[in-house]
Design a protein around this nucleic acid. Structure first.
Length: 292
DNA sequence: CACTTGACCTGTCCGC
DNA sequence: TGCGGACAGGTCAAGT
């Protein structure tokens, strides 16, 4: 899925586009994980509701409705949430193809507003979902109970990360920062980028890493995510923002998907791809040496 | 409990 | 060109 910077980019976009709109129709199409067993709730608590706010926690989007129900949305690997205004594009507009083809083959949920604009949830692999919960119950969802701190919060410090890593001392640092119960929002792209930034090999066991490096890693995670946010997130394949636009951060990535290219710190060394924590992993073999 | 691996899906790419 | 296998930005459940 989109990671934290991508989900946050969508949140900011939707907050501008759909707050105040009234839902006319909501429908899941061939999306068994969406609105499970509660089409009646969809009809009662969504239709006629006004969108009150769009929030985010970790990689989950929360769309609050005036009925005190909340749409809880996880995009997983290939989910998109794209808003299409009542007037579609024509005449060579750059977003014409993406927008005008919706709903498409991979559209799984359609939300129509009373002004004839639409919000489409598209998801090729169908890992993602859109669910409806009473707003007050959202904090009680299992994932919300377990998920770790927001990395961009001022409360998320090196001391906090170090403390939270104490129960993951025997795993690799990459597996640890991908663990959403340690901290929220890091996925494969920002794990590789932040570990390169502090010259940590992703397979290094957490327990052997000096506290000072964990503090540096904390700063690196924040910096990488802020940089990505400033470029509208990362588009590897599927990601688009709420208006159907791709993100540009990968142009600035140092290692992710750059195997065979040179390390920015070592002009004669090629970036390598390996497998750590079951995920494709990109490193500079000279600046990132595993600690044992 | 901590840790690893496979499953969930569909598409694409790479090697034979 | 066709086919099989590996892999893809994320979690879960089930195994050790």
């Amino acid at each position: 899925m989109p990671e934290l910077p991508e989900v946050e980019t969508i949140r900011v976009g939707l907050n501008k586009l759909i707050v105040g709109k009234i839902i006319k129709r909501a429908q899941a199409i061939d999306s068994p994980k969406s609105f499970p067993n509660n089409q009646n709730d969809v009809n009662v608590f969504m239709v006629g509701a006004t969108v009150a706010a769009v929030r985010r926690r970790a990689k989950v989007l929360l769309i609050d409705l005036s009925t005190n129900y909340t749409m809880v949305i996880h995009l997983k690997m290939t989910g998109q949430l794209v808003y299409v205004g009542a007037e579609r594009f024509g005449g060579g507009h750059p977003d014409e193809d993406l927008i005008n083809d919706l709903p498409g083959r991979f559209t799984r949920v359609v939300i129509e507003f009373t002004d004839s604009s639409h919000l489409y949830f598209n998801d090729m692999r169908r890992f993602g979902w859109v669910k409806l919960y009473p707003t007050l119950e959202v904090p009680n969802i299992n994932f919300m109970q377990k998920v770790g701190p927001e990395p961009l919060s001022d409360d998320f410090t090196g001391a906090v990360l170090f403390e939270r890593l104490q129960r993951r001392k025997n795993t690799t640092i990459k597996a640890a920062i991908l663990d959403q119960t340690v901290l929220a929002g890091v996925g494969n792209i920002y794990a590789d980028e932040s570990l390169w930034a502090v010259k940590l090999h992703p397979a290094t066991r957490v327990g052997v890493i000096p506290k000072s490096i964990i503090y540096s890693l904390t700063s690196a995670i924040k910096e990488v995510m802020l940089l990505s946010l400033s470029h509208g997130g990362s588009t590897d394949k599927n990601y688009v923002d709420a208006e159907g636009k791709k993100g540009n951060y990968l142009k600035f990535a140092n290692v992710f998907r750059r195997e065979g290219q040179t390390c920015p710190r070592h002009p004669s060394v090629l970036i390598e791809k390996l497998r750590v924590a079951g995920r494709g992993t990109h490193i500079c073999p000279v600046c990132q040496v595993e600690m044992v």
